[in-house]
Design a protein around this nucleic acid. Structure first.
Lengths: 157, 157
DNA sequence: CATGGGGGCTACAGCGACTGTAGGTTCAAG
DNA sequence: CTTGAACCTACAGTCGCTGTAGCCCCCATG
């Protein structure tokens, strides 16, 4: 184990190195700093940001939580809570449970959409003229909806 | 069946009436017009928009397709294609199939996220101090990821 | 005919969570 | 010392809306 320049856990990182290790883009890191998700980085004399291992850990936490669908506000709360270890973890649990409910709801909705979409796409025999296209029929026909038009599937295409 | 003022399919609609019938908000309708998803409405002398049944049909098409997760650009294409019925429906089919793929991918990812989230939340016994909270442990620990951090779960909470 | 209020109008800012660009500066390797 | 990659700031754009401010129109009632 070396002292100052450990390749695995270096004591100081440029924004590019931090980006490489965390999987975030440089812009995203700067933006996280701007909105207060990351503490302000130290600077070199020339103004370049300098990060330490604690920034990497925090960024990994954020990224992992983001990957699970937590909104940044919740992540901020989680980070605050983990910073004051005396507090009850009820709030943490509640955030997780709330997100789990939201994920479940989203999955149900997505499943319904998938079914309709599958039915619509399967009903269309390719090659015909658009005039007789059942996909267009199905989209134009709002009557046997089943699931339509509450939004919140998320942008997908 | 009356002639000019059929309650079910009126010959002309204010933006509010169109909003009520289509389920879109007035702002959304104006915005759709602004970005060319809807043709410009006729106006009264005082400048109020006046819509006909064709606007309602188009808006219903848009709303249904949006409900299925189609992005507006795809919907525009679909609407263009349905306006030129001679063209092959291959392109329509391709858009639908592409969306179906995206929905499938999103469902798989969401299922993986749900599992991890469930595991994390279930591992946490409420009531303890945040210092020993397994949710925070799990989020801080990026090593047994399984699914993490590729984005695209969609904002959920 | 006046008035009140509900709906309409435009224009623009904001959301979430970034991404991309332009134009300039710094750093480190050769 | 030179070069060019990496960095800096600031700001616009993405997607699909939503909300606000401040004014105007239209119709029904008195």
């Amino acid at each position: 184990m070396s002292t100052t320049t450990d390749a695995a856990r270096p004591a100081s990182l440029s924004i590019g190195a931090l980006a490489g290790r965390s999987g975030c883009k440089r812009q995203t890191i700067r933006w996280y700093e701007e909105i207060g998700m990351l503490p302000e980085a130290a600077r070199t004399e020339g103004g370049h940001r300098v990060y330490g291992p604690q920034h990497l850990a925090r960024l990994e936490f954020i990224r992992h939580a983001r990957g699970l669908g937590f909104p940044l506000d919740d992540i901020r709360t989680l980070l605050d809570l983990s910073g004051q270890p005396g507090r009850s973890c009820d709030e943490v649990h509640e955030i997780g449970a709330r997100l789990l409910d939201a994920v479940d709801a989203r999955m149900r909705r997505l499943a319904a959409v998938r079914e309709e979409l599958h039915r619509i796409v399967a009903s269309c025999t390719t090659g015909g003229p658009a005039a007789s296209c059942r996909i267009l029929d199905a989209l134009a026909d709002h009557h046997h909806d089943g699931c339509a038009a509450q939004s919140d599937t998320g942008a997908v295409g």
